Simulated assay, not measured.
Amino acid sequence: MEPTPIAASPLSQEDLASLRRAKEALESPSLTMKLASVVGSPIEKMMAKMPNVAQEKIDEATQAALKKCLQLALRTLSKSTVDGVVLPPEKPHNLMHKLAVATTGAAGGAFGLFALPIELPVTTTLMFRSICDIARSEGEDVHLIDTQLQCLMVLGMGGPSSSDDSADIGYFIVRGTLAQSVSKATSELAAKGLSGHGSTALLKFLQTVASRFSVQVSEQVAAKSIPAIGAVLGAMINTVFIDHFQQTAHGHFTVRRLERQYGQLAVERAFQTIDIASGK
């Protein structure tokens, strides 16, 4: 069966343009390539040189960072309603979050792997807050459990996990895999409340996200492993890091916004017919 032509799509031309931008964001060059362009050296070679103890520290720091995100990041977001009236979506404060993350990157560049247990939770929390800000700008209610987990899920969508066969796995496949964990965790949290952080489904969800996010963190740490990297380059690496996930968030929550209007099937069909390379 041939794909439905874009001309036959129920999406308006404006929404098709939004979907195109979303697909471009979701299919942008990998974080590996972006970091390599900053440091001027292949990230894979740097990762191969990292000792095993470094990966253990990364995994531990990633788990701690994600747990802190769930507990702390949303507390600093402004409410989406005033006296029961829903506020109109505002543009996300991407630059503000980039500057904050660049500051933590400067510290990481100066102190290297030793700073990871302190830097990563702060950086990840700032990134998570930025993702929530982007979700809010696309009409999501960031105080819903499902939305909170969708924001956390973005950190697992920024690239392949170590168990993926290829980096070229499509957005809807990755999203579908993670969505199953989100659904189970949402159901448990809805039943037990947010105090039930120890729910089995939520812990499995965090582990799934962590296994994927830790790959991206390893690449970031590898990029910072250059001798005498310094604060400036450390800040640049962190800026590339958050920008990568901000793009993913923009793409993901744009798709969700359009799905609320047109339905998932119509949006997915339109998404698949867009050819970024040819501009069609």
Rank of each mutant, 00 (worst) to 15 (best):
M1S: 10
E2H: 06
P3N: 00
P3Y: 00
I6A: 15
A8W: 03
A8N: 12
L11Q: 08
Q13T: 12
S18R: 15
R20I: 05
A22V: 08
M33R: 15
A36S: 14
A36R: 00
V39Q: 11
V39E: 12
P42Q: 05
P42G: 05
K45R: 13
K49P: 06
P51Q: 14
Q55D: 11
K57G: 02
I58M: 11
E60Q: 15
K67N: 11
R75C: 10
K79C: 09
V82L: 15
D83N: 13
G84A: 05
G84E: 05
V86T: 12
P88S: 14
P88A: 15
P92H: 00
N94W: 01
H97K: 04
K98L: 05
L99I: 10
A102W: 02
G112A: 15
G112E: 12
A115S: 15
I118P: 07
E119D: 14
E119W: 04
L120H: 06
P121A: 08
P121H: 01
V122T: 13
M127K: 01
R129T: 04
G139K: 00
D141K: 07
D141T: 09
L149F: 05
Q150L: 14
L152G: 02
M153L: 12
M157A: 15
M157E: 13
G159H: 02
G159C: 07
S166L: 09
G170M: 10
G170A: 14
Y171D: 11
R175W: 08
T177Y: 09
Q180D: 15
A185G: 01
A191D: 12
L194R: 03
G196C: 10
H197S: 14
A201M: 07
L202P: 02
Q207H: 06
V209Y: 00
S211C: 06
R212H: 06
F213M: 03
V215C: 12
E219I: 06
E219M: 14
Q220L: 13
A222Y: 06
A223Y: 07
K224P: 04
K224Q: 14
I226H: 08
P227Y: 01
I229T: 08
G230E: 07
I237C: 14
I237H: 10
N238K: 05
N238A: 14
V240H: 00
D243I: 05
Q246Y: 00
A249V: 02
H252S: 14
F253D: 06
R257F: 01
R257P: 02
E259T: 03
